[in-house]
């Protein structure tokens, strides 16, 4: 089995002949401008570094207080999971589930799957479920909303600044770092390259 010599544009169905590109260049569809691939220098290393740090910060963001709300006489501190827990207490189970999936489970799984596939590529290991894991990444990415959650937090804090004093906990900063690492991972993630590398592992040795 070999690498493709031409590709079908995912967006407009045009058949495009592949030409080798060097680092820093990108390959686009001549008709609809869809970007097939972008070659970054040291893409594998960057993906791994951001993936590992992202997962690390995600785990850490469970460990500390997330936000504190202080008014005259009383205060309340929440952890990351409290945003889902309190929705569940009001029997908004579907919204709680959605929040959990789109801001923690799916982005975490994306990072995990990227790392799993990259480990297989880097050390030429034929890990089980390698192809399914790689496929999963593409299906999960559109449902990641971690950065939107962050914007939501900032908006809600602006909404209540007049009512009380807000303090950010360590978990909040960890979550911000997690979102930054995740975003960087998604920038360097290139489906075309990833499958090229996978085929190198699967067929070429």
């Amino acid at each position: 089995m070999s690498q493709p010599s031409q590709v079908t544009c995912h967006e407009c169905d045009l058949l495009v002949a592949l030409k080798p590109i060097s680092e820093g260049q990108k390959l686009t569809c001549p008709r609809c401008r869809f970007v097939f691939t972008r070659k970054f220098p040291l893409a594998q290393e960057k993906l791994m570094a951001f993936g590992v740090s992202g997962l690390f910060f995600l785990v850490l963001s469970f460990a500390f207080p997330f936000l504190s709300f202080i008014t005259r006489g009383s205060d309340r501190t929440i952890v990351l999971l409290d945003s889902m827990r309190s929705l569940q207490e009001f029997e908004f189970f579907s919204v709680a589930m959605l929040l959990m999936l789109t801001t923690i489970i799916i982005p975490g799984l994306v990072l995990f799957a990227v790392l799993y596939v990259l480990i297989a590529i880097k050390w030429k290991l034929r890990l089980p479920m390698l192809n399914s894991t790689a496929k999963l990444i593409s299906y999960l990415i559109p449902w990641n909303m971690a950065e939107i959650f962050l914007i939501g937090i900032l908006v809600s804090l602006i909404k209540i600044t007049s009512l009380a004093q807000i303090e950010f906990g360590y978990s909040f900063y960890c979550y911000v770092l997690f979102v930054l690492c995740l975003t960087a991972t998604l920038v360097y993630f290139d489906r075309f390259q990833l499958w090229y590398w996978i085929r190198q592992v699967e067929f070429n040795d």
Binding site: L67, F69, T71, S74, R76, I78, D82, S83, M84, R85, S86, L87, F90, V95, A96, L98, L99, T102, T103, P142, M145, I148, F149, I151, G152, I153, V155, S156, L157, K159, I160, L163
Partner: peptide, 19 residues
């Protein structure tokens, strides 16, 4: 995806403001 902001705002406010 960005329309979800408002739902997330509600989630945070509900968690934070319980006195």
């Amino acid at each position: 995806r960005w329309s979800m902001v408002d739902v997330f705002v509600v989630a945070i406010l509900v968690a934070l403001i319980q006195m």
